[in-house]
Every structure is written in structure tokens, then in C-alpha cells.
């Protein structure tokens, strides 16, 4: 303001430069925030992962991370994450769909039930899962008559996927619920008025409309699962060790930051790859549709 009144001769130019300066000022916190919280840690992690004990550059941490046990842990991590993403999508869809049909009050209550397990300590949850899924648990007691019982639902990959899926459900349900609420129910009525049955309406109208939500929900739970290790440790066995566990072990037990950094970078790359994949698929789908339309 002072500058403006002081130099009335060239107010325009002053205003312009002032504007840019103010703009930079406004952007500064965000830029600093991003630099401090994202760019700096990522770059320093990258450096760590490329540094030898004597300070020279090396790729051997990556070679380490991609061979032997580390590689199989990585593959396990990807597999479990994919399974979790798929299952939490399916169950999330069913749940969100049901909830989106409820009245707001009931919807809120149902949502609470979905979300609450998130806030229960890992230990209590462990206990709960054992009561539910253990060899002498509720599920096996009720299915005692079935051939092959008791089923081993814990301390294997199935157990882990059940656990991680339950942890992911709040995310997928919330995300899908939002998307589903955004779908105009009138469109479904319109389809019905033209003679479309429930299955057709679901397949040709509802599903395409919530598809973007499905993609992002699936991706979200995949990415979140990649970094999980508490639930896999609780509900799995050694074969379900996830890459985050390894990173944690290296840092906290062996004070081995370089190897951990390399695995962290790999995890980041996998996450980005996942993002890219979904983007690619959705744009491919869109262009394919365009081609078929014209």
C-alpha cells in the first residue's frame, strides 16, 4: 500500500510486480512445506540408498534388495497388497452400496462400525481375531461339522489378507460411499423407465459411474497395504513378512540405513508405478470408448 501511494507515477507496473511478489509470498508456505516434508526426505533417502559405507556411490543396496529373501519379501508384499486391494474393493463396494441406501442416521452408524476397528489397539484386535478365526475360534466352532475343519484362518496369507482388508475397508467404504452418493439415482430410474432390468442398470449405468471411485479406492488400498507391517505381523507367519517389516528391522535393529533406504525407494517406485498403471488403464479405457463411439 505504501509503495502504491509513494509512487503514483507508475502504478500499473508497481501493482503487477507487487502482485507477483504477494503471489510468491502466498505460495511460500506451501513451497516450504513441500520442500521440507517431501522433497528433502525423498532426496536424502535416495542419497542414502546409493551410498557405500565409505561414502562412494554404489548400487549394491538395490542388488541386495532385489535378491534372495528380500526379493521374495517384495513379491509377497506386492501379492498381499493386490489381494487386499481386490478384496477390500469387493467388500467395500458391497458395504458402501448398502450404506448409501440407508438413511443418513443409519448410514452414519454403519460407517462408525466400519471405522471403529481402526481405533482399537493392535493387541485387542489380535485377541479379537484369534477369538473369531482361531482353530478354536467362533468361525471354526460353527463350521465344526464341515469337512476339513478346523480351517486355518490365521498365521498364513489368508489371515493377513483378512486383517489388512478389514483395515482398508474404512478407506474404500468412505471413498466409494462418497462416489455412490454422487450418483444421481434419477439416472437409474431413467434406465428403468426405458426397460433396463436391475442387472443391466448396474452393469451399464451404475458401475461405469462409480468406476473412477473403484479405481482410486483400489489403488489407495493397494498403496496403503504396501507399507503395512503391523497387521501382517499380527495375523501372518514368517512367510507373510512385508517389506516394511524388513525396513523397520534394518533401521531399528541393525542401524542399517542404506539398505532400508534402498527398499524405501523401491516401495516409493512401486507406489508410483501403481498410480501410473491406474492412470494408464483409465485413459486407455476412455480412448477405447471414444473409438467405439465414432
Amino acid at each position: 500500500m505504501a509503495a502504491l501511494t509513494a509512487a503514483p507515477a507508475r502504478p500499473r507496473k508497481l501493482l503487477a510486480s507487487r502482485k507477483t511478489r504477494v503471489g510468491i509470498l502466498y505460495a511460500l508456505p506451501v513451497v516450504v512445506y513441500l520442500l521440507v516434508l517431501f522433497v528433502y526426505p525423498i532426496i536424502s533417502t535416495l542419497f542414502l540408498s546409493l551410498k557405500n559405507a565409505d561414502g562412494s556411490l554404489t548400487l549394491h543396496w538395490y542388488v541386495d534388495a532385489l535378491t534372495g529373501v528380500n526379493l521374495s519379501v517384495l513379491i509377497t508384499t506386492l501379492r498381499i497388497s493386490a489381494e487386499t486391494a481386490l478384496l477390500s474393493l469387493v467388500f467395500g463396494f458391497i458395504l458402501a452400496n448398502a450404506i448409501s441406501r440407508l438413511r443418513p442416521l443409519w448410514a452414519g452408524l454403519a460407517m462408525l462400525i466400519v471405522v471403529v476397528p481402526h481405533f482399537i489397539s493392535a493387541l485387542v484386535r489380535t485377541y479379537g481375531w484369534i477369538i473369531l478365526l482361531g482353530d478354536k475360534g467362533l468361525v471354526n466352532e460353527t463350521l465344526a461339522w464341515a469337512p476339513g475343519a478346523p480351517y486355518h484362518l490365521l498365521y498364513n496369507e489368508l489371515g493377513v489378507v483378512i486383517g489388512t482388508t478389514s483395515m482398508m475397508l474404512p478407506y474404500t467404504v468412505l471413498l466409494l460411499y462418497g462416489v455412490m452418493r454422487g450418483v444421481d439415482r434419477g439416472l437409474l430410474a431413467a434406465a428403468a423407465s426405458m426397460g433396463a432390468g436391475r442387472v443391466t442398470i448396474f452393469r451399464r449405468v451404475y458401475l461405469p459411474l462409480v468406476a473412477p471411485g473403484l479405481a482410486s479406492a483400489g489403488l489407495l488400498s493397494f498403496i496403503l497395504s504396501l507399507g503395512y507391517y503391523i497387521t501382517p505381523a499380527l495375523m501372518g507367519g514368517p512367510n507373510q513378512t512385508m517389506i516394511a517389516t524388513l525396513i523397520n528391522q534394518q533401521v531399528t535393529k541393525e542401524n542399517q540405513w542404506n539398505g532400508a533406504a534402498a527398499q524405501g525407494v523401491l516401495l516409493l517406485l512401486l507406489t508410483l508405478a501403481g498410480l501410473l498403471l491406474v492412470k494408464l488403464i483409465s485413459s486407455l479405457g476412455a480412448s477405447a470408448k471414444k473409438r467405439s463411439a465414432s
Binding site: 485377541y127 484369534i130 477369538i131 482361531g134 482353530d135 478354536k136 490365521l154 498365521y155 507367519g237 514368517p238
Partner: peptide
């Protein structure tokens, strides 16, 4: 070995649930 435990209470839980 059904479970490799990683926290103190788990052995007790596994024993009491007869796992």
C-alpha cells in the same frame, strides 16, 4: 510352530485360546 509371537501378551492369548 503355529505362530511366532512378537509382543508380550500374545503367548498368553494363544495359550488361553488353546491355539
Amino acid at each position: 510352530i503355529k505362530k511366532f509371537w512378537d509382543s508380550g501378551p500374545l503367548p498368553g492369548v494363544l495359550l488361553s485360546r488353546q491355539e
